Amino acid sequence: MNSSSYLFIIGLFIIAFGVAWILTGGPGADLGSPVPTTPLPAPDVNESASIPTPVQDTSAQPTFGAQPVSTVAQPITPVVPVTTASPTPQPTAQISSDDIKLHFMDLAFGSDNTYLERWNATDNNGRIVISVSASDDSDITQLSNAAKEFNSISQTNQLSEMIKDGMNGNIAIKFIPDDGMSAIVLNSSVAPTNHEFLSNGTIIAKITRGVIYIDEDLKGDQRNHTLMKSLYYELGVVGETAKYPDSLFYSGDNANVNLTYADRNAIAILYGPGLYNGMTVDDIRKIMYIH
């Protein structure tokens, strides 16, 4: 090997040594220490504004003393005031006891009679059986409900709530064609038991002692009204009232079906223990102190 080759190798060695010197920081440096890294520039303070602040969940944290105030917006529920529906006013519910007595007198004494008409409390132990023929199922239901209501009012007689089929009851009710009404003859000598009801000038029911004839073509409330008014006529409510339009016994043309407060109290007097069939107006005025 010539001298030039040795010089070339020595030169390469010097260059390699120099590079190693630069990289290790010269003698005395800890060759096992990590190479320092260049620190990153500090972030701009304005950048922190774009970082969302995390919401702390406190639902699982125990609380002591005062409860933390929630900052979460709650939905607003509209407050609806609670109102109590007013009951339907009953015009006859606020009348006095004297008004009840006068109402009873109007219903118990019609324009054609001066004697009380009511069933004897001792006949058949006061039990009255109703039978009906050529009727609808709704008529049976109506009569059964009417019997229950009457029994809750009367202190003497009671209506059988089992409505019989046919014409063999103490009160028999028969529905007939309207053209058959003319064949029913009323005996005026036994008035007021014999009576007829009209609607717009047309006869819709005829009543004889113990038997009621009703036009079979009647429908709805008019049919029920005629049935109820005829039944109570047989029970002794032979009069009417011009004072209470909501009464079942109102004298004007109507289709009232239910007894009112005044009606119920008047019937309670009629079938109370102190009255009996055949009493005169004067008899009743004396015991009821009606002037």
Results as ranks from 00 to 15, higher is better:
P91D: 03
K174H: 07
H225S: 12
T63N: 05
I212C: 01
I290E: 01
D283K: 00
F109Q: 11
S182N: 12
G210T: 05
M162N: 14
T92M: 04
V45E: 04
R264F: 07
L7A: 14
V211G: 02
D98Y: 02
N254G: 03
L31G: 02
Q74H: 08
S251F: 10
T92Q: 05
G236R: 02
D215E: 07
E216F: 06
L275P: 00
P78I: 05
I100A: 03
N187H: 08
M167P: 00
S154P: 05
M105R: 01
M105G: 04
I287H: 00
I10E: 09
Y250G: 01
R209L: 10
P68G: 02
T280C: 03
V129A: 06
I267K: 02
A268S: 09
K101A: 10
H291L: 05
V211M: 15
G236E: 11
T193I: 06
T58F: 15
L186I: 12
V257M: 02
H195D: 12
L186Y: 09
P75M: 11
T202D: 03
G126E: 06
T92E: 10
T71R: 07
I100R: 00
N170R: 09
S182G: 14
A268E: 00
L116M: 11
F197Y: 15
A255P: 10
L231S: 07
V19C: 10
T88H: 04
D112Q: 08
G28K: 10
